[in-house]
Write a protein that binds this DNA or RNA. Structure first.
Length: 494
DNA sequence: ATCCAGGCTA
DNA sequence: TAGCCTGGAT
């Protein structure tokens, strides 16, 4: 037990109890392990208690001061991070050299803000590589905030099509209008407080506000995105729940980010260095610690070194807060995979719900040159065009599906093109694609027009110009025979 | 085929 | 707290 506790202490720097309380602590750890280390989610949940989260996931007798940055350490981190950033960051079109707030002429500082708002909005939930072509195309189409504000919603949605999370496009459009109306048109200063942005600018939350204010305006506001959350969780070995903004882990991460950026000469660079580090080195899986500019300040990396030193003499299980792993299963050659990748602690994800859909591809013209699309007003894929779709409950049985399928085949004189599978964050959708000729669907289209007045014929060649989702494209490719049908039937759940 | 990452809002 | 999309890794 003593040995166990000793190991526990060496691995978890925030573990300060005496060995005699170790068992109690361990039980408590497991009870709160609704949020568990990244790398061991499945194992932890299959073998450990699934009891409810009953108290703060920050362990009792676990003062947050243990995670606090000392001023000396903060200074080291700032130096190492910014130096590394200046020499090693990827060159990206939205990266601007920092300039002091309002030292540029008004129009150029508004442009800075616009580019920053645009890139940061696109980068929400989306990787750099995906954003790059969209960002460039967007600026050609809407070169200024005035151009964006003046555009109509359909153009905006079409420019965003394929990027996902389409409400971002709608809100970016609203944001442009808001900023233009309240500041740019009057040549008024745009507020530099994150509170203003979060409260008044659509689509801007705590992260984006911090990004705009620090990067475009050079104001020392912190920012925490998924990268920063991971980097700081590892640097300070934060064993706290980061699943919601209010949870203890998140609070600590934001506080830490604030301490780091406070007094920094180039807050935008410092913030970007944290994100860049998370994106390129401090990655979720297999972080490249040997290349990390701040590994000597990193508690998780320190754990790793201690574990490597100890493991020769260790047999059996090593307790790692809050899970446990078998040291004999650690691959000797790559121990770096372990300790840093425990962080941050994330909640177990909920299963996606099943959906079955009938997708009606109605083709007009002998050369099949137009299809009937309608615009979704709300919910999933709102603002985009799509084929008329009949949604069946995922719980409806095979018989229901057959009934609906046959009914539509009959009324539309349709043939089956096959099925596609598409995943959303919370839905697994199987689409049964039916193709029919407009001549056979006149009554049906009339009834569609009554329910959804936005329906229109779109030429095959212009399908991608009107703003259409990946799901729609996938079904379209199947209908014209470019897409292989998904083989397996979905949800063969035992 | 399956799993994962990633901010904001109603 | 759940809804919202896609691309990349395994």
């Amino acid at each position: 037990m003593i040995a166990d506790a000793y190991l526990y202490r060496t691995i978890c720097p925030t573990y300060t109890d005496s060995p005699s309380t170790h068992i109690i602590r361990r039980v408590f750890c497991l009870q709160v392990a609704r949020t568990v280390p990244n790398a061991f989610q499945q194992r932890a949940m299959s073998t450990k208690s699934k009891s409810k989260l009953t108290s703060s996931p920050i362990l009792s007798n676990h003062p947050s001061s243990l995670h606090a940055l000392t001023p000396a350490k903060a200074a080291l981190l700032r130096t190492h991070l910014t130096q590394w950033y200046l020499t090693s960051a990827r060159p990206l079109p939205w990266r601007l050299p920092p300039i002091p707030y309002n030292s540029a002429p008004y129009p150029s500082y508004i442009h800075r803000m616009y580019c920053c708002l645009l890139s940061e909005t696109m980068l929400q939930q989306t990787q750099v590589k995906t954003v790059l072509p969209y960002y460039k195309k967007w600026l050609q189409k809407f070169p200024t905030i005035q151009a964006l504000a003046a555009a109509n919603e359909e153009e905006v949605m079409a420019a965003w099509a394929g990027l996902g999370y389409y409400s971002r496009a709608k809100r970016l459009h609203q944001a442009a209008k808001h900023l233009l109306e309240n500041f740019v048109e009057k040549e008024k200063e745009v507020p530099t407080s994150t509170e203003y942005w979060v409260k008044n600018v659509p689509g801007v939350g705590p992260y984006t506000a911090g990004a705009i204010v620090s990067i475009a305006f050079d104001v020392p506001a912190p920012l925490v995105d998924g990268n920063v959350q991971r980097v700081l969780s590892r640097l300070l070995a934060i064993h706290g729940d980061v699943s919601t903004p209010k949870s203890a882990g998140s609070t600590l991460v934001w506080e830490t980010a604030g301490q780091l950026v406070a007094g920094e000469k180039h807050p935008g660079d410092l913030n970007q260095s944290l994100m860049e580090l998370g994106a390129t080195i401090c990655t979720p899986v297999a972080p490249n610690c040997s290349k990390c500019p701040v590994r000597s300040e990193c508690l998780a990396y320190g754990n790793l070194l201690r574990l490597k030193r100890k493991r020769k003499s260790v047999f059996g299980k090593v307790e790692i807060c809050p899970g446990s792993i078998d040291v004999n299963q650690l691959p000797v050659e790559k121990p770096d995979l372990y300790i840093p990748s425990f962080y941050p602690f994330k909640p177990i994800k909920k299963a996606q719900r099943e959906e079955i859909a009938l997708v009606l591809v109605i083709v007009r013209g002998r050369e099949e040159n137009a299809v009937y699309l309608e615009k979704k007003a709300k919910g999933l894929l709102a603002g985009l065009y799509d084929f008329p779709t009949v949604l069946l409950d995922g719980s409806s049985g095979k018989a229901d599906l057959e009934t609906a399928l046959n009914a539509h085949k009959e009324t539309l004189n349709a043939r089956t093109a096959g099925t596609t599978k598409h995943l959303f964050s919370h839905i697994r959708r199987t689409s049964h694609v039916l193709i029919s000729d407009a001549d056979d669907a006149l009554d049906f289209i009339a009834s569609l027009r009554k329910q959804n007045t936005s329906g229109k014929w779109v030429e095959k060649a212009h399908l991608e110009d009107v703003g259409v989702s990946e799901l729609c494209l996938k079904n379209w490719r199947l209908a014209v025979g470019e897409e292989k049908e998904s083989k397996t039937k979905p949800s063969k759940r035992k």
